[in-house]
């Protein structure tokens, strides 16, 4: 057992690489964070930034080969998940840590009744018999707000709408009362009104059950209202991590600033142009020698193109991967004071 002081998860310098035809892709290249009990962490990034691979690594769901966790520790409640055998991992996965995926249609088995899929979880992990499992499954569907759960439980996935399917997924993920819930883009495939319902549900369940949550999304709006702290990823690297309020108020990384500015503001002046980050996300297999963001960064200087940037500590909880992190932070503070 590793001493943890109220921390449910400690990830230290995790690196997950993939062997591809184009060479080694460093999908996650050194990520460190802790998650306290009951806390919500947001991981934000564009496609290919490594946010999903981080979480698949924690769940030990990286396909090997081509992928491999090459270094780092993932300590979940005192145990390094990396050192466990697959059988031991299976006992934790689905029971003590659970995951919700983006697309509820592809993550439910279309041939099996909802009841079969829900009951399987508790029969396996909690040793329920059929009757107990069924009762528990109905209770869970009730909890996540599926009307008429008693009858709906024998339906097939296609008989449910997208939002309802995501509720079923959440019911399944929460059936063993997990300590950690990983939600990977849980609302991306849903309409806004349904997204609001699902986010409200996750918030509510979190408050009632005290679950710790990792919320992965590309939508800065979603993390703003849901999380305690945020990690911003780009090209497999952690570019910035900070408490949610601080990250939005005073970002210390040009990429974070760019992302925040490129979201349309409902109160904007008509006819003004939207801020855009130029260029394209990099090819993670062929990163430039310096900062991976340098080719798109407005304030990049020679050093940014030549040298890999340091992970600068702004304060105890706030770090930014940038040669000019302190300067960018100072600018953000000055901009905020002007408001």
């Amino acid at each position: 057992m590793i001493e943890q002081n109220g921390k449910i998860l400690t990830v230290n310098d995790l690196k997950t690489y993939f062997q591809t035809e184009d060479g080694v892709v460093k999908a996650v290249d050194g990520i460190t964070f802790t998650l306290e009990k009951g806390e919500t962490l947001g991981i934000v990034g564009e496609s290919g930034s490594g946010k999903s691979v981080t979480n698949l690594s924690i769940m030990r769901l990286i396909p090997e080969p081509p992928g491999k966790i090459v270094s780092g520790t993932i300590v979940f409640d005192g145990v390094d998940v990396r050192q466990l055998s697959i059988d031991e991992v299976r006992k934790i996965r689905g029971k003590r840590m659970a995951m919700i995926f983006q697309d509820p249609m592809t993550s439910l088995n279309p041939f099996l009744k909802i009841s079969t899929q829900l009951m399987e979880v508790t029969e396996l992990h909690l040793g329920h018999n059929k009757k107990q499992a069924r009762e528990h499954a109905i209770k869970m569907l009730d909890t996540v707000g599926i009307p008429d759960a008693k009858n709906r439980i024998d339906g097939y996935p296609h008989e449910f709408s997208g939002g309802m399917r995501q509720r079923v997924m959440i019911a399944m993920a929460l059936s063993c009362d997990p300590e950690l819930l990983i939600a990977d883009e849980p609302t991306t495939a849903l309409d806004v009104t349904i997204q609001a319902q699902i986010l409200e549900l996750i918030k509510d369940l979190k408050a009632r059950m005290g679950t710790s949550v990792i919320l992965i999304t590309h939508d800065l709006g979603v993390v703003a209202g849901m999380t305690d702290k945020i990690i911003v990823m780009y090209a497999g690297k952690v570019f910035e991590q900070a408490p949610t309020f601080e990250l939005f108020a005073t970002p210390a990384n040009p990429y974070t600033k760019g992302l925040l500015k490129s979201v349309p503001d409902p109160a904007h002046e008509d006819g003004t142009e939207l801020y855009q980050i130029p260029g394209l996300p990099p090819d993670v297999a062929n990163l430039p020698p310096g900062c991976p963001f340098a080719p798109r960064c407005a304030r990049a200087e020679d050093i940014c193109r030549a040298q890999y940037p340091p992970f600068v500590e702004i304060n105890e909880n706030h770090r930014s991967l940038c040669h000019f992190a302190k300067e960018v932070y100072a600018e953000s503070v000055a901009e905020r004071e002007k408001l």
């Binding site: 009104t193 997204q195 319902q197 409200e200 939508d219 703003a224 309020f245 939005f248 108020a249």
Partner: peptide, 23 residues
């Protein structure tokens, strides 16, 4: 009201109208 706003200070204060059910 369902659209999340990328500003935690606004998000903390606002109340959402949550519609019941699906389309």
């Amino acid at each position: 009201s369902a659209v999340p706003i990328p500003d935690p200070e606004i998000e903390a204060k606002r109340t959402r109208i949550i519609l019941k059910g699906d389309v």
